[in-house]
Nucleic acid binder design. Structure first.
Lengths: 212, 212
DNA sequence: TCCTGTGAAGTTCTTCACAGCC
DNA sequence: GGCTGTGAAGAACTTCACAGGA
């Protein structure tokens, strides 16, 4: 019984890329099939969790044998939308923005960085790693012309809120936010926040509050 | 009634840094008290959620008035362990490692990067932003001497697994992992994974599978 | 009147446990 | 014998709704 896509647990979605990575890894190792137990072992999930997650999208497993690795790679790529190219813009060409723009993993995964935005006159109207750098004032025009679908935000804290607001206004519906700013956004948009300080703070919390 | 620290929901811990940031922000705005409703509004949480989270640690609110901002900043800093200095090492001085080493937010938040590890002879035995760069072979010795407690891993994919294993072996109990590798670790350790490709993949998923 | 703190209810996610198939 | 798929049970988290204090 295939779950309708509407009711996939959020947590299942977050794990799909991990499964995909595991399948790719085991393909490289020369395996043909992999069991839910083995997938779980490699990622610290229970086998039941793995089976339940994958069963949301169809009955891919073969009883007594496991999951066909190359079949599942194709399936997961389609489910995740990696069968198409996504056009990405990076906002902020500081150290982090530059690192993200240079990151090979993006292009390999079909996330194609087609524009960088910054406000520094020394940076704009040039290219960085062959990617054109525009002044942020050009945002709406460039987004429309290049059909940009995903924004990665790596601007300084003090301009973060305004930048994100302008990205929302420009109609970019997918945002990966590396800043501390939190901005309300419409339901049909999706924003994911990565906060370095926050992650370290919760590590700090756990280091203090566990028995050791 | 104060919850014992043992039973704080994991999700509550993840939100504590967000509350702390909100309190700091409202202090800068000149506020003295802030209500759970306002905290929620700024972060897209329900007011009940905010109250329940904060009530895990004590009764900080004043009925009819809200939370005393400067008191809560101190309290949250103590709860999160930000009343002490943490010694951090960065593994991998590539673009991302360099960006993280330069990031001012770390030092301000009492996460002090005291060592960088890499294997490139052109980089080791020098300093980067005044931080000494060691060859990874020196890991155990440096960790012991400098009492490093937290590792940030930003090495290339192919050496990630081995690097993380060596960090675990060296006894660093807090790890922030920017690589795709997933390595099992003992219960008393804490590892948080940040996976750029994974985040973009789930954004991709949601862009496809929402009604628009 | 405003806002907190919190049991109780509701929702979402995870694990169990086993029938069924290879 | 090994492994999947899945209802049912259990655990974890969130929201409701209201008593009670400032």
């Amino acid at each position: 019984m295939v779950n309708t896509l509407r009711t996939i647990p959020l947590f299942t979605v977050e794990r799909l890329s991990i499964y995909l990575r595991t399948f790719r890894e085991s393909l490289v190792e020369g395996m043909d099939f992999i069991s839910s137990t083995e997938i779980g072992k490699r990622n610290d999930f229970t086998a039941a969790q793995v089976r339940k997650d994958l069963s949301c999208f169809g009955n891919f497993g073969i009883k007594g044998k496991g999951y066909n690795i190359s079949e599942l790679i194709n399936t997961l790529e389609t489910i995740l939308g990696l069968d198409r190219e996504w056009k990405v813009a990076i906002f902020g060409l500081g150290k982090l923005g530059g690192a993200l723009a240079s990151y090979k993993g993006l292009k390999n995964a079909r996330f194609n960085v087609v524009a960088i935005f910054d406000v520094d006159p020394k940076k704009v109207d040039k290219t960085y790693k062959n990617i054109p750098v525009y002044h942020s004032d050009m945002l709406k025009k460039v987004v429309r012309e290049k059909k940009i679908q995903i924004a990665i935000v790596a601007v300084p804290t003090d301009s973060a809120k305004a930048t994100i607001q302008r990205i929302l206004d420009a109609g970019i519906e997918g945002i990966l936010n590396f800043t501390e700013a939190r901005v309300p956004y419409p339901d049909e948009y999706i924003m994911k926040n990565i906060n370095l300080a926050g992650e370290l703070e919760s590590i700090s919390y756990y280091l203090i509050h566990s028995d050791r």
